[in-house]
Design a protein around this nucleic acid. Structure first.
Lengths: 217, 217, 217, 217
DNA sequence: TATGAATGAGTTTTCATTCAT
DNA sequence: AATGAATGAAAACTCATTCAT
């Protein structure tokens, strides 16, 4: 008995459309999270931003957490792709590699911020989703480790270790130095200088120190 | 608006009792958080665990966040005390230091887990509380840095840097390797071996690598 | 965070149904307030009375205060409609007008009671809501004033004045004479006769006195 | 077993001291209410302002509401005293009386504001307190009515009526025109001029109109 | 008398998720 | 597939009042 037809966004019937819509949701989630990384945006806001109804989001993801798990996985893929590309060249210098990595991290704060939420995030994933998610991550890490071993001439197994530790160091430093806007104001006083170094410099230095130690004879 | 009074636990009238009660609340919060570190326990649960009425918690802390900020501050103090103690001896070997640190971290998971929440936590602190909190942390870090410089013969300013990076590496590794119970089950499959090393070994190795790199000539 | 769904009352999908549901909420609020006018009923009670979930109320009103602001606005509209109707006739006698007004007030105690809360009510309205609310009221008053001027042959501007004062007198008398049930019992003693006259008579007399004074040459 | 003696405010042992302390509480309540008249201040704030402990307040008043009932009664006394004084002179002109009354009201906003809360206030009074309270008010009103009759040569019984209506008109106008600060800003737009006249002028005019009508032959 | 710690019912509001349409 | 109304379980926090000290 409806008399007015409510505007419905074009129906996604084929796989291409569906993938595009899924991407819309992810993009909306990503951008909202970037705006305020202290909590996951609500489904309502994601839907609004993606210009979809709340319910529609649930036809693409079974859980809010899954959205962010997907985002996380994408991030990891991107980082590993970067690594693959960096290592692809003839004889990459360590400095170049670190430089490329740091630039990437700096340009993609959502990667690190999402990462800081991972613990909380993985919580409501169904066991299956969790399995898929972790499997994908593990495969990626192992692949990346292999590349690293090849490039730096590391013994088997070391690649994964070193990669994990680089990752851990980066994650830790990011969390240590990424202050939300309100905090920046408070921290502008000179007393706080020791905890307010430049992130890029800090990361470059720390990584250099670590890698030197890790690859020393 | 009638209230019948139920039996009261005991009345904290002097400062000693009050401090004890405050500690009860902190302890309740700590233990609940340890049970499920994916989110801060609710005030209701903290009160219940501390065997107090919800309202009572608010006579000791003005905000839920303050409880956890206090916990965080306590953790930091403890770690720094450990450092001071470790560095106090005549000529501490690096291995001994790392060993003591790692043991502490392993024995006090709430420290690292709390830390993983710090970002989210500090958010609702009032600017004043935030200031106090960060000031305390900064002072502690600077003091620790000084001790480290003295012990390892580092140039001025290096202590804080090295300490921060040790901290970052630890934080990152912890978050990487501390899986919630449900996840542990999923990860028991052999495929996941690369992301499931022993935390202690991993941390010892990583710290050794880093420190070696950081203190190399 | 699992939710089991309980049976839903019905689903208001078109605008008509939605308006009806909105009206249900308003009606629930109105009737609860009428039962105890000393405070605004809680959203929980309103929802219960309207046989809706608490959350549902918030899909129709963004704030508790808005519910009552809407009620207030409706009351004003009704009174003004009454006035318009009363003044619409050929040559309305003052007595008839006052009679109609008083009957209305007597039959709609919630109007006066709500009014007594207006001060407190308007407080938490957002500035925008407040603006809208007050604008609507002002427009209504001005329109009513115009009608009154036409009907009674008053000079321009007098209508609004006289109407406001009639309103003020009514409001004041109402608050003076509308006793809550518990109080009525106490006031049944003869000593209290002076403060317990019949509201209707009192209002009629007072309005007559005022209007006579206001329209005297 | 207390070792430190907590600072206790001088003990009020005789009636004079007790009355003074009672007055402190009333004064604190009055001033807080004046600062924000949209709700009764909390007992905690009253106690703080009076430099007393919360519990102490309850040794002087059995209920929060009683504090304000007392304030209300005091206000009434003051207004009636003013009336008595104004009517005491030889042959007071009506204009002078109204002038004095209006000045008083304008200088004592808490009287009108408290009044606007009366309904809500009287709620939790015990039946006895309510009785006392209302009796006092009735007696005052009757006395004032007598004075008015004598001064204006009104027939018996008219004094109370006229006085009540003057009161009602004043109350109504006050509530109509006393805007909280936030609202004043919103109402500064020209559209709102009709509902933003000067309170004093408005009250003087309205009272004159009413009294003229009430005393006309 | 004075104190203030303790109480706990009660408040408003949010939000992930479901499901009739 | 898409919609968005409906749900109701949380959550944080307030505050009048009591009562052991």
């Amino acid at each position: 008995m409806e008399h007015e037809s409510r505007p419905i966004r074009t129906r996604a019937n084929d796989d291409v459309d569906k993938a595009a819509r899924r991407e819309d949701i992810l993009e909306a989630a990503r951008s909202l999270f970037l705006q305020d990384s202290r909590q996951l945006p609500s489904v309502a806001r994601i839907a609004e931003k993606a210009r979809l109804a709340k319910g529609t989001v649930y036809t693409y993801f079974t859980t809010k957490e899954e959205i962010f798990a997907a985002l996380l996985a994408d991030s990891l893929d991107a980082v590993l792709a970067l690594l693959a590309q960096g290592l692809g060249g003839a004889q990459p210098s360590l400095d170049t590699l670190i430089e490329a990595f740091v630039s990437y991290i700096e340009a993609h704060p959502e990667v690190s911020r999402l990462d800081a939420m991972a613990y909380q995030l993985e919580r409501n994933l169904s066991p299956e989703a969790m399995h898929t998610h972790k499997l994908r991550a593990t495969m990626g890490l192992v692949a990346g480790g292999g590349l690293l071993e090849a490039a730096l001439g590391l013994p088997a197994g070391r690649g994964v270790k070193v990669l994990s530790r680089i990752y851990a160091l980066t994650r830790g430093l990011w969390q240590w130095l990424d202050y939300p806007p309100e905090m920046r104001e408070v921290l502008s006083e000179p007393v706080f200088a020791p905890i307010r170094p430049d992130f890029r410099e800090e990361l470059v230095e720390a990584l250099n120190e670590y890698v030197r130690g890790a690859t020393a004879p």
